[in-house]
Design a binder for these strands. Sequence first.
DNA 1: CTGAAAGCGCTTACAG
DNA 2: CTGAAAGCGCTTACAG
Lengths: 330, 330
Amino acid sequence: MNLEHIAKLSGVSRSTVSRVINNEPSVTDTTRERVLEVIQRLNFQPNVVARSLAGGRTRVLGLVIPMGVARLFTDPYFPIFIQGVTSACNAHDHSMMLWLAEPEYERRMINQIVNAGLIDGVIISSSLIDDSLIDSLIGDNLPFVLIGRHPTNASINYVDVDNRESARQVVNHLLRKGRRRIATITGPQNMIAGLDRLEGYLIGLREWGLIPDPELIVDGSFSEEGSYLAVNRLLSRPIDAIFAASDTMAVGAIRAVREAGYRVPEDISVVGYDDIPLAAHTVPPLTTIRQPTQKMGALAVETLIDIIENPGLPPRRIILSTELVIRESD
Amino acid sequence: MNLEHIAKLSGVSRSTVSRVINNEPSVTDTTRERVLEVIQRLNFQPNVVARSLAGGRTRVLGLVIPMGVARLFTDPYFPIFIQGVTSACNAHDHSMMLWLAEPEYERRMINQIVNAGLIDGVIISSSLIDDSLIDSLIGDNLPFVLIGRHPTNASINYVDVDNRESARQVVNHLLRKGRRRIATITGPQNMIAGLDRLEGYLIGLREWGLIPDPELIVDGSFSEEGSYLAVNRLLSRPIDAIFAASDTMAVGAIRAVREAGYRVPEDISVVGYDDIPLAAHTVPPLTTIRQPTQKMGALAVETLIDIIENPGLPPRRIILSTELVIRESD
DNA sequence: CTGAAAGCGCTTACAG
DNA sequence: CTGAAAGCGCTTACAG
């Protein structure tokens, strides 16, 4: 079943059927109705592939998540984010193609993405700073939006949350609670979220005239286990609070703190970041930063479609605000 | 840049370039080398869309996960499974398209999947029993494989683990440890994994001549919270063990048990299913069934490609074995 | 072993 | 407002 088929049955040409399908205004209402009736009766679905080849647009969006990101395997952040992307794709009549970028295939994949013409644009989540994929995309003029701002290139479209501001707010909150020896478990420093959350922590301390102690800054790589190990090391020094750059790391931190015989929050406060579903159910329930994860996914899709349909406009740089959710870990 | 372009530069016809790209044997080595040299020099990538339209095959596979499955948001099972699918797609030069099936869009989506010609086949994960998508797929002759066996239709291809046998094994293990009042937290009974794990539990009890007590069977809907609530209800009766049909539910069970003042495993054993990464790190570490989640994803892809390339062969029904991992929750 | 040509199912100037 | 025709970039009989 194809356009020709529908055309014959409704007594018009293939061109007209195409126009009806694409909602072009230049069709009589009566003609339109006649054609639509046939389309519906036959439950006709135009062939996406042919449409793409002729029209130069596939209505398929790529979502790239670097696999190196170990988070993926344990952090509920991703499913929630992906859900936001998928819903928005559905709502805008697009499809989503997921790529988990494995290093071994990366080169071939970049090529596929950029040159094969399968997709109209790309969303890159949790990209590493200076990801070579970004350069490829720029070089080949394929529209893309980043989740997380780009530190240097101002012409790149992105959707992000205000990581620095919210981290600063966490530190501020802890300081107001009387904490003074605040440690932080950071994410990888080659990811913008890792970088910015650390910077916010530093800003927060300095605002209160405190000098950050490098020994209280340890890397947890956005993983539960990484954080657990980091906090074990940390506990040899006197600390009274921990800001973990993700809830998953906060969970690891709490585990380490309690195993060492300290109480949360009486001895050591623990604050996280993300507000994943689990955060409300840890013991004690986690104070954390709520970020609109699902909304970021949806906004990324909408921004990308906008860029595809309106090239040449100035870059969109969208920063969403967050919210400090105070529960019982302090 | 297209075939014509490459053809001109290497002094052959478009047809020959196509043959080289598709590795057809009927090309002289010298011709082949000449063409390949040009392709590599220009880093040429054939247009996937045109290829699909002409060849009738897109090399794109769809992965459908019903969103109703609340698990998705909290259960690490999915990222691991998706990772298996993606890797296998890469390895076999295919791409993967992810659909999270939202009820509201479902009808349109089925149409898209089945009729738009965008994909060569579909993998359905965690499908509900009697999912209407399955009927659509059968009706339209689109190749597909299920994760989880189909209870009635023997002609359907699937990859599954032996849920019944492994659940039976868990019960057997607990009975050998001297437990006699064994409760189970089940998954939804409209999912084959939920169904089969319950059945295995029943078989295990009966093997020892025990009569299952309906009051010890409660639904946890494959979620942490669902399980927590279910176990709260359960604790009014004297029980000495809980078999949770997923690790995520086991975590909820442990939480409820401990909050009620009982010890795990001294008072109540808790055994899970899945062996997610967290299972080794719960307090106490979880005894559970390890299933080859990633491998299931990869096998589903390979099976699907096989079906696409060799239609008409008898249905593949693949059952993978599992492993009881004994840790400290008993 | 290779090339010329038809065809995959659409879109889109162009002409009327 | 509508149709005939060219074209998107490939694959694949067919002929030689």
